[in-house]
Each structure stands twice: as C-alpha cells, then as structure tokens.
Amino acid sequence: MIKFKNVSKFFDSQTVLRNINFYIDRGEMAFVTGPSGAGKSTLLKLIYLDEWPDEGEITVGDFHLTSLKLSRVPLLRRSIGAVFQDFKLINNLTIFDNVALSLRVRGINEKDIKTPAHEALKKVHLRHKAEDYPQMLSGGEQQRVAIARAIVAEPMLILADEPTGNLDPNTATGISRLFREINIQGTTIIIATHNRDLFKGSGKKVFQLDAGHLIGEEVG
C-alpha cells in the first residue's frame, strides 16, 4: 500500500529525511513518532506530494510518486484524506460546506453531497453544528470537522498530522477512538504524533524518527 525506498528529502543544504525505508499494508494503522523537528510532518507531506522527494522511491497504492505527472497529483490527493495539524478549515464556509468541499473537488453532484456530508458530521458527533462557522467551534471540534472532511469521501488512506496536538487529554482520547473506529472499517491510517498515549498499548506499528533518520520500528 505505502512503500518508502531509500527516500531522502533536503531543504537547501539541510537534511530533513535521510534514507527512509518502510512499508505499510492496506488496512493497517501506523504511527510515526519522534521529537519536534524529527521530520514527521515532512514524511506525511511526501505521501500527498505537498513536498517532493529528492531521492528514493515512494509508492502509494497504484501511484508511483517519483514519476507521477503533475496532472495526476489531484487524483492522488483525492485518494487520501488528510487531517492537518492546523486543521486548515475555510473560515467563510459553514462546517457543512467545509466537509462537503472534499466531495465537491471530486466533481460529485450537489444532490449526492448532502447525505454523506451529514453522515460524516454525525460520525464525529457534530451533526448539530453543520450550519456554524469554524471560528464558532472549539479546537477539539474543529479537529473533528477536519476528520469528517478527511473521511467523507471514504479515501483509501487517512493521514493525520498531530491530530491531538492542541487538544485536552479527554478530547484526545475521543479522537484516538474515532481513528480506531475508522480503521476497523478498513481504511489505512498513518498518524504522526509525539503523544505516546495515542499509540501505547494499541498493538499497531510505530515508526520512530529522529533528526530525519528512521531509528526504529516497534509495536505500540
């Protein structure tokens, strides 16, 4: 499903990721952990091509990213649901429209958008906030909207960058449970986090990054 082979990434002369190799199978849930600046976010960005690898090969499903044409990048991104650390919600759109955007960019008819968007909001327990705007919601609620937007189109893969970074422990636990429920339904999930509570005792793969190097793989 996701394969990194000798992948390196540099910013100017600085090495951000060096010689990364790993494999994550379809339907798996894996964690990428490490201290700040270890390269966790960059690793996720390489998967949805917000950054391009300088060396090595990356495969995501049927997409060979190293040789991927620019015109196919939107197709790759549509097969991924991304949850960003800063949520990346659009403030002048309602919660419903933020979630529906994921379907609209896929060219889905307006009449076929309402039901799945409301379903996704229901899964994150925010159905009642559909007509509100992002700034009216708490950090935890905004994070759940971002998750609803990521899952609404039922992508093959969900990437989450520090999904509990700004949340209190209770809300973080709720978000963690939500990801596990999504994973049980067969969606591959990769979560970048420095919060060990998120993967402790989960029985899932945990990749440890430090200063751009993959220093270990363990089971959480």
């Binding site: 917000d50 939107p74 991104r77 994921s102 960019v105 896929r106 060219g107």
Partner: peptide, 15 residues
C-alpha cells in the same frame, strides 16, 4: 490560503 486548501484536498486547476 483557501486555494492552498483546495489543492491539498485534490482540486484540479479547472475547479
């Protein structure tokens, strides 16, 4: 910023 989000969600240039 909005356009950046559109791109990350998989929007095409046409969209």
């Amino acid at each position: 910023d909005e356009i950046e989000i559109f791109k990350l969600l998989g929007a095409t240039g046409g969209f």
